[in-house]
Write a protein that binds this DNA or RNA. Structure first.
Length: 279
DNA sequence: CTGTGGTCCTGTATGC
DNA sequence: TGCATACAGGACCACA
């Protein structure tokens, strides 16, 4: 499940492999990944062909691949999106959705099983695509303002997990790293934002930034083949997880079994002793 | 305005 | 063996 560390790993791989290359041909094999682009498959193919990539950029979980003409290709990996760098004659992976044949003879491929992700042309989006102007800066960016995030969280009655997952509050966190962050900070996921002190929220967000940075250092987290970098390699942060996916296993601090609870059509993992439920 | 919960998608694992 | 169901969950959107 690509969150900030996984998306940044992909961005680094793209920077190495596509910067300066020109798109010679585009082939979209499925309409859904280009659904946000006006004109569908044919429009997407025609509008992207001939463009030259500059250095890929990222905000939170969004990637954009600027072109040297001021436009950009906006990309989101969703749940299962991957960029892969191949030779055109390489066999296709099962869920290959879009092909970009590049001027250096390589082929950039967008592969996506569940197709929650997508690609679109962002007109004038090289600096910051207007489509993602509402996405807040992420904790690893220079624009990140932690005091502003703390203030925003304290204005809300919502639970801390929902707030951290809201990309308009702070971007980059997904289900895995929120659970890890809250476990480290010993805060229950349903604790209302306004019931947390400035100091406590500062601790939560400090842990969050650390978790994201550590996971990036490890190349991200992979449970299966759904997240890999552009070379098809997996990260190894899974072994660093203390809460996520550890239902029934002992808390690494106190030994109590980690609990899984349904939350927003997914799961929350936490230690019932270290992370006391709010009243 | 804020807050909440449904929905889109496919593949794998599990249960009867 | 075969079919049904649960689960994985990021972002958006309808609605209270």
């Amino acid at each position: 499940m690509p969150e900030l560390p996984e998306v940044e790993s992909v961005r680094l791989g793209l920077a190495e492999n596509i910067t300066g290359r020109t798109i010679e041909a585009v082939e979209a094999l499925h309409p859904r990944p280009v659904r946000k682009h006006d004109g569908g498959i044919a429009g997407f193919e025609a509008d992207l062909a001939g463009r030259t990539f500059a250095i890929p950029r990222r905000r939170g979980k969004y990637l954009w691949l600027p072109f040297d003409d001021g436009d950009a290709m906006l990309a989101h990996l969703g749940m299962s999106g991957q960029f892969r760098v191949n030779h055109p004659e390489d066999e296709h992976l099962r869920n290959t959705r879009v092909l970009f044949t590049l001027s250096d003879g390589t082929q950039l491929r967008f592969v996506d099983q569940r197709m929650f992700g997508g690609l679109s042309l962002s007109s004038g989006g090289a600096e910051l695509p207007p489509e993602i102007a509402h996405i807040a800066p992420d904790p690893l960016s220079t624009e990140y303002d932690q005091e502003a995030v703390v203030a925003r969280i304290r204005r809300s009655r919502s639970g801390i997990k929902r707030l951290l997952l809201s990309q308009t509050v702070v971007s980059g966190y997904g289900n895995i790293y929120v659970d890890e962050t809250l476990w480290r900070a010993r805060v229950h996921y349903e604790k209302p934002g306004m019931e947390l002190s400035v100091r406590r929220l500062g601790e939560v967000l400090d842990h969050g930034r650390e978790v994201l940075a550590e996971a990036l250092e490890a190349g991200g987290t992979s449970f299966d083949a759904l997240y890999v970098n552009v070379n098809g390699e997996s990260g190894y942060f899974e072994r660093g997880l203390a809460a996520y996916g550890r239902e029934g296993q002992p808390c690494l601090r106190c030994g109590r079994p980690i609990v899984r609870e349904p939350f927003m059509n997914r799961s929350s993992y936490f230690c019932p002793a270290c992370q006391k439920a709010p009243r």
